[in-house]
């Protein structure tokens, strides 16, 4: 604890923050690294992909909304286990999760993405972009796949994914925070911990800068998701109102 890191945060404290976030991440991931490795080359057959493509648009939208909602519930659990998060006021906890949960889901998605054949884990097996054709939003799907590929290219360790997820979630960029200083203090510590780990792991000095440069893309993807949802809802209001998970509607509608 004697050695001081940036901003006079002790290295011991940075280490404690990092360990807490890594543990929270590992405890709240839907799949362990081992499970993902075992599944990595189990891909949907041609017939299975055709089956997804043949689904009515609203059915596939509903299926994706359910999967996203499921993933978000794990992200809420991740947030709750981060030291300091539950000490923020309830308004800010809700705001940070409302605006950041989908971004964290997208960051976590890179764990379940195989960049060698551009496939993602969906409904138990890996499949390519064509699996989501029936959603009718090729631009969004293609942008999400591009993002996952670009994040995979950085070859992040599980520890780095954990800290980056926390940094994305605990962000002072969100509007209407009631205690932005408190959020900022927590965010700074997370960034220092991330910086410390990345300097240790990567030869590339710009690795952290490259990672941070992906954040605007994350935000753009979430905006695109909201726009596509609105467009879909205009055509299928009943599907959204009656069949979509209540948490999904609460967060995005």
């Amino acid at each position: 604890d004697i050695q001081l890191g940036p901003n006079n945060v002790s290295m011991g404290e940075l280490d404690r923050i990092a360990q807490n976030i890594i543990k929270s991440h590992l405890e709240t991931c839907q799949y362990t690294t081992e499970e993902l490795q075992q599944l990595a080359w189990q891909t949907h057959s041609y017939e299975e992909v055709k089956m997804f493509q043949g689904k009515p648009r609203d059915v596939l939208w509903q299926q994706c909304a359910i999967q996203i909602t499921h993933a978000i519930q794990y992200v809420v659990e991740f947030a709750k286990r981060i030291s300091g998060f539950m000490e923020l006021c309830q308004n800010d906890q809700i705001l940070l999760l409302k605006s950041g949960c989908l971004e964290v889901v997208l960051v976590r998605m890179c764990r379940a993405f195989n960049p060698l054949n551009n496939t993602v884990l969906f409904e138990g097996k890996y499949g390519g972009m064509q699996m989501f054709k029936a959603l009718g939003c090729d631009d969004l799907v293609s942008a999400v796949f591009d993002f996952a590929k670009s994040l995979c290219a950085l070859q992040l360790t599980e520890e780095e994914i954990a800290l980056f997820s926390a940094a994305v979630l605990i962000s002072t960029d969100r509007p209407w925070l009631m205690e932005p200083r408190k959020v900022q203090k927590l965010q700074e510590k997370i960034y220092f911990a991330l910086q410390h780990i990345m300097q240790k792991n990567h030869m590339d000095e710009d690795a952290l800068a490259k990672l941070i440069s992906r954040i605007p893309t994350l935000s753009a993807l979430c905006t695109l998701h909201t726009e596509e949802l609105q467009a879909f809802q205009q055509l299928h209001p009943e599907t959204v109102n009656v069949l979509f998970p209540p948490l999904y509607k609460e967060l995005f509608n």
Partner: peptide, 17 residues
Amino acid sequence: LKEKHKILHQLLQNSTS
């Protein structure tokens, strides 16, 4: 905000499983 996000608020209130 709590009123508009009852499910999220409830998830935050639930004890960590």
